[in-house]
Nucleic acid binder design. Structure first.
Lengths: 143, 143
DNA sequence: CCTACACTCTGTAGTAGCTACAGAGTCAAG
DNA sequence: CTTGACTCTGTAGCTACTACAGAGTGTAGG
């Protein structure tokens, strides 16, 4: 690695992955779908990253950790990139996402309740009859 | 539709879909991946279903509603099909799945907490500064 | 100078669980 | 004999990655 090819602060994909905890294939994926900018290249075609890429990737990763979809993140990044973001707009988007998260929790909580209630009815013995299987086997409509 | 081709109780894909609330493409998908048996066919190649298919499909759909994965359902069906199911075995599998559901709830609850706490800090005004964006923008390590 | 090794490049395929479509065939009723 | 509703098949699309093959690059050690 010569300092001709990588500027004093530049580094490559593996280093970006190491600094952010991101899989290096994922970095390329984010570039392909336009979430990360196409970085400059060395003469040999190697990507060269700097601190701006670290920041942007961390933003994306943190948003993913908070359950934002790629499209939601793309929207947030678009606002920030254009400098047109306002707290009002971001708050609204976050509240929409939050509603979605709460809906998913409600779904899972319903599942959790049914499963845990059913499982308590299980004898846990070596018999073929099982309340779980009965719950999965809908009874005839008229019986 | 002649009664030569469809036995007295037989019906086709759209009818099976209607009776179970299942998308007809999904039925074919379950057959392709071996969750549903290949049904008999008419001379023209049309699938012919009966009540056994209704039961099995309802089992699958109900299990999906309870969050079981296709592979988990395949396992349960395998037990039932071989007649070797015991309450002990089914209970164990259900508890493993339940643990998974609870882990997913915990993940989402953590997300919900962070998002809702952050959103309460939002002024919601037409200013560019936003606590949500700050939460997504990791501060420098030494500052 | 050569080789070994670590890294990078690209395109592509696989994961889960469906869902949808194109283009062809079938069947019964009007 | 046409219309319309159904069916058939293979295949592609969706989300968000992850992994691999096969080729190229750059550097350190011998």
């Amino acid at each position: 690695m010569t300092s001709d090819h990588l500027s004093r602060t530049g580094f490559r994909r593996a280093a970006l992955g190491r600094r952010t905890g991101c899989n290096i294939e994922t970095i390329r994926y984010y570039e392909n779908i336009g979430m990360m900018p196409d970085p400059p290249r060395t003469a040999a075609g190697y990507r060269v990253y700097d601190e701006t890429h670290v920041s942007r990737l961390r933003f994306i990763l943190r948003a993913r950790q908070l359950g934002f979809s790629i499209e939601e993140i793309r929207g947030l990044l678009g606002l920030v990139d254009s400098g047109s973001q306002t707290c009002a707009e971001v708050k609204e988007r976050t509240e929409r996402h939050l509603a979605d998260v709460r809906a998913r929790i409600a779904d899972l909580a319903r599942i959790e309740r049914v499963l845990s209630e059913t499982v308590t009815k299980c004898s846990g013995e070596n018999v073929p009859e099982c309340p779980v299987l009965e719950a999965l086997t809908p009874r005839p409509v008229l019986a």
